[in-house]
Nucleic acid binder design. Structure first.
Length: 225
DNA sequence: AGGAAGATCCGCT
DNA sequence: GCGGATCTTCCTG
């Protein structure tokens, strides 16, 4: 597909649903890498949520890195440590889930070294398993790309909210990332952070080009990660 | 105690 | 493309 075109429902992305007994939870070492690397390497990995006997799986197709305290777009900018963003300072491999705009939850992966307030925002996933439940929660049919093509939308589809803030993804929690084959990844500017000045220009958004569950296509020529 | 802003989404034009 | 929704969190006074 040409760069810059808006994705449509006809841009079918079809990856096979995984066998449940072969899901391999990613270890803490994965999250302990530098945050830009975690953001890049998370594209293609599986987001898994077991809850009440049901399993939801999505393939991560878009992420963003936030690297406080120097990154002025991060909630941890300037070393500002509050109850809300406390999870960012903890050990890697935990979830940082926050509420914005009075109605939306966003899911992040805490990355980097313990004490470094870095995180990776999950901005888009391709539904692989449990699609009907996602569709009910999103109040739309299962064939729509709007099911999970944004950070707030995928949290609704996966039932992620304040209960998941601070959860250890590498322990026994029902929420975790599972390994999957690497895929093509390109970079783009981050979304919705124009207040961050020069930091808004960093190409710290990572996505699988052409996948219809990417929230917005990158501008201009595609640049590899 | 009050106010402003926000890592977005949705519906309408 | 644009504006309204909606409310928690944090900063200021």
């Amino acid at each position: 597909m040409p760069a810059g075109r808006t994705y449509t429902d006809s841009d079918a992305a079809h990856h096979a649903p995984p066998a449940l007994d072969q899901l391999r939870r990613l270890p803490r070492q994965f999250y302990g890498q530098p945050v830009l690397e975690v953001a890049r390497a998370s594209v293609g990995k599986l987001l898994v949520h077991h809850r009440r006997g049901r399993t939801l799986v999505g393939r991560i197709v878009e992420t963003e890195a936030y690297r406080g305290p120097e990154d002025l777009a991060a909630h941890s900018a300037g070393g500002r440590r509050t109850p809300r963003n406390e999870a960012m300072w903890g050990p890697p491999g935990h979830a940082y889930v926050f509420f914005v705009y009075g109605m939306h939850w966003h899911l992040n992966l805490v990355a980097g070294l313990d004490g470094e307030p870095h995180a990776v925002l999950i901005r888009g996933v391709e539904p692989l398993l449990g699609v009907e439940l996602m569709a009910r929660r999103r109040k739309m049919t299962a064939d729509r790309r709007e099911l999970t093509n944004g950070p707030g939308k995928l949290c609704v589809a996966f039932g992620i909210d304040r209960r998941h803030d601070g959860v250890d993804l590498t322990g026994s929690s029902g929420l975790y990332l599972a390994d999957a084959p690497a895929t093509r990844v390109v970079t783009a500017r981050r979304v919705g952070i124009d207040y961050a000045g020069a930091w808004a220009k960093r190409r710290w958004r990572f996505l699988e080009p052409g996948n219809r569950y990417v929230s917005r296509p990158p501008e201009g020529r595609l640049r590899g990660a």
